[in-house]
Computed example of a mutant assay.
Amino acid sequence: MDLDFNLMMELTEIELRLKGLDEGGKKYFKKDMTRPWSFKCSLCEKRVGSNKVDEYWSMPSTGYDRYRFCSKECADCYSKARKNELLAQRKQVMQNRKLLREFYKEAERRYMEVKRGGWVS
């Protein structure tokens, strides 16, 4: 059952990441900064600076970092691609759990046959 537990933990992590994609959104640069702050867009690598624009888009990633984007289009493109990737991973985990259940059922059936004195080949 450890395998099923590991698959459930992986499934939970995927669900949390899918939920995290919906938590991203528009952010505004602080106006009281003493120096301009900038970053590279996580998708197109365009330089975005607080001295040039007022807003950017942000999305959580794994860990403490966040993905930052220069525009809503870049954020949406990343979000769509990441969501499709996570949905494919979730589908694979669900298929693995189904195969594991079938394996356990067959193993239990064979065990019961042997326990009753029959031989299963």
Rank of each mutant, 00 (worst) to 15 (best):
residue 67 Y to P: 13
residue 17 R to Q: 02
residue 10 E to K: 01
residue 48 V to C: 01
residue 19 K to E: 11
residue 47 R to V: 12
residue 95 Q to A: 15
residue 81 A to N: 08
residue 89 Q to K: 05
residue 96 N to T: 05
residue 100 L to H: 02
residue 77 C to L: 13
residue 69 F to V: 02
residue 26 K to G: 12
residue 117 G to Q: 00
residue 57 W to K: 00
residue 93 V to L: 04
residue 70 C to T: 00
residue 61 S to E: 05
residue 45 E to R: 07
residue 70 C to H: 02
residue 28 Y to W: 14
residue 25 G to A: 01
residue 12 T to M: 13
residue 109 R to I: 03
residue 66 R to M: 10
residue 94 M to G: 14
residue 70 C to S: 00
residue 7 L to E: 03
residue 101 R to D: 05
residue 10 E to G: 10
residue 22 D to Q: 11
residue 102 E to T: 06
residue 50 S to D: 00
residue 70 C to F: 00
residue 90 R to N: 04
residue 23 E to S: 14
residue 82 R to F: 07
residue 35 R to H: 11
residue 5 F to C: 08
residue 58 S to H: 06
residue 16 L to P: 10
residue 12 T to N: 15
residue 115 K to S: 10
residue 18 L to G: 02
residue 15 E to T: 05
residue 119 W to P: 11
residue 61 S to L: 08
residue 67 Y to K: 04
residue 61 S to Y: 10
residue 100 L to E: 01
residue 104 Y to F: 12
residue 73 E to W: 05
residue 15 E to V: 05
residue 59 M to P: 09
residue 16 L to G: 13
residue 19 K to I: 11
residue 6 N to I: 02
residue 50 S to N: 00
residue 65 D to Y: 13
residue 3 L to A: 11
residue 27 K to W: 10
residue 20 G to E: 03
residue 19 K to S: 15
residue 101 R to H: 09
residue 28 Y to S: 14
residue 46 K to D: 10
residue 9 M to S: 14
residue 108 E to R: 13
residue 117 G to L: 03
residue 45 E to W: 09
residue 15 E to C: 09
residue 116 R to I: 09
residue 19 K to M: 13
residue 112 M to G: 12
residue 14 I to K: 03
residue 80 K to N: 08
residue 35 R to N: 11
residue 61 S to I: 05
residue 113 E to L: 15
residue 71 S to A: 04
residue 46 K to S: 13
residue 29 F to H: 01
residue 48 V to Y: 01
residue 97 R to Q: 00
residue 67 Y to T: 02
residue 44 C to I: 04
residue 92 Q to S: 12
residue 68 R to M: 04
residue 82 R to N: 07
residue 91 K to N: 11
residue 73 E to N: 10
residue 54 D to F: 07
residue 31 K to N: 09
residue 106 E to T: 05
residue 82 R to A: 06
residue 48 V to T: 03
residue 65 D to K: 11
residue 103 F to T: 07
residue 2 D to A: 09
residue 16 L to Q: 09
residue 71 S to W: 00
residue 28 Y to Q: 14
residue 1 M to P: 14
residue 97 R to K: 03
residue 62 T to Q: 12
residue 26 K to M: 07
residue 99 L to I: 09
residue 95 Q to F: 15
residue 120 V to H: 15
residue 61 S to P: 13
residue 67 Y to D: 06
residue 112 M to C: 14
residue 66 R to H: 14
residue 22 D to S: 15
residue 60 P to D: 04
residue 38 S to M: 04
residue 105 K to Y: 12
residue 24 G to Y: 03
residue 120 V to T: 12
residue 97 R to H: 01
residue 10 E to Q: 06
residue 67 Y to V: 05
residue 46 K to M: 07
residue 106 E to M: 06
residue 54 D to M: 07
residue 103 F to N: 08
residue 44 C to D: 03
residue 3 L to M: 13
residue 115 K to A: 09
residue 120 V to S: 14
residue 81 A to R: 06
residue 6 N to T: 11
residue 101 R to P: 12
residue 54 D to C: 12
residue 117 G to I: 01
residue 105 K to V: 07
residue 1 M to F: 05
residue 97 R to M: 03
residue 90 R to H: 01
residue 88 A to E: 02
residue 65 D to N: 15
